[in-house]
């Protein structure tokens, strides 16, 4: 029983972090219709920003998370304006190629600048508690709470703010949104920045819980894509649900059967979802 509880709790906190990364990716796709393959690199850079801020310079942890988010927001916005804007309206393959180039550049430079050894970010809180025989560190609780808080904040932002409304309008129908006076160019870089910042924060969390290495971005990209496919491209709710599902699969099957099977199974599930529900669980049909 306590094993299951342990797996459930681990799966939940893992799932929330996955969801953070995936929501960023799905936001970017929804607004710009591009496949941002370098999304995981934003996650990696976010983690390293916090590492240098907190572990190397000894500055406060939470300020570091905010710094990391801000930095990656700016990076994302700049990348959008410089690299992706000129490709707007062209075949999706071109933006895919550019983001592939970004993956090569960022992960290559990462290995060069940060070194290839594994590093850890010291945690801000310590200790833990036992719930029904399952151990739960305060760190994990705080991190899950932050993830939930961020997801709620993003949801509220999209629902209730003017900019959030504009983002949703552009995602729904770019032409009509532009006709109604929404400056889609501005929305594009804002959404790209926010999406990247979400990945950066997830990187900070994951980096604190586990460890960081410059090649960690690729796996994050893969997970984010798996989630986004499950939930449906462009759907925030879908990304949340997909993240939680994948977190549970990862936690349960990896501990009970094997990691290899978990990955093969999740890819088979994704394939089947795409074949029988071609636009994901919550997605719409993008043509």
């Amino acid at each position: 029983m306590s094993d299951f509880l342990q797996m459930g709790l681990t799966g939940l906190s893992l799932g929330l972090m996955y969801a953070l990364i995936a929501i960023g990716l799905t936001l970017i796709f929804g607004v710009m219709r591009i496949i941002q393959y370098a999304h995981g690199e934003m996650f990696m850079l976010g983690a390293f920003a916090l590492y240098y801020w907190h572990a190397e310079l000894g500055l406060p942890y939470w300020a570091g998370v905010a710094f990391s988010a801000g930095l990656i927001f700016c990076l994302g916005a700049v990348l959008q304006v410089v690299l992706f804007k000129p490709l707007q309206g062209k075949n999706i393959l071109y933006s895919l190629a550019v983001s592939l180039g970004l993956v090569l550049i960022i992960s290559g430079s990462g290995q060069l600048l940060f070194g290839t050894t594994t590093k850890g970010i010291p945690s801000a809180v310590s200790g833990g508690m036992l719930i029904g025989g399952a151990y739960l560190s305060y760190e994990r609780i705080v991190i899950s709470a932050v993830s939930i808080g961020l997801i709620i904040a993003l949801w509220a932002f999209l629902r209730h703010s003017v900019t959030g409304f504009a983002i949703r309008a552009v995602a729904e129908d770019p032409q009509t949104a532009a006709l109604q006076g929404i400056r889609t160019d501005r929305i594009h870089w804002i959404a790209f920045g926010i999406g990247s910042a979400m990945a950066a924060i997830a990187g900070c969390m994951m980096g604190t819980l586990l460890s960081i290495v410059p090649t960690m971005g690729f796996l994050a990209t893969i997970k984010a894509f798996m989630i986004v496919i499950m939930g449906g491209l462009g759907s925030v709710i879908g990304a949340l649900v997909g993240g939680l599902i994948l977190g549970m699969i990862d936690s349960v099957i990896t501990t009970t059967i094997s990691g290899d099977i978990a990955i093969i199974l999740s890819f088979v599930v994704i394939f089947l979802i795409l074949v029988f529900r071609p636009s994901g669980l919550f997605g719409q049909n993008w043509d």
């Binding site: 690299l83 000129p86 490709l87 071109y94 190629a97 550019v98 592939l100 180039g101 970004l102 993956v103 090569l104 550049i105 992960s107 290559g108 430079s109 290995q111 060069l112």
Partner: peptide
């Protein structure tokens, strides 16, 4: 080490 970085630059430059 610069190989992948340069390749990425060549790729992005040729697309744009």
């Amino acid at each position: 080490y610069f190989r992948t970085i340069f390749f990425g630059v060549v790729l992005i430059a040729s697309v744009l």
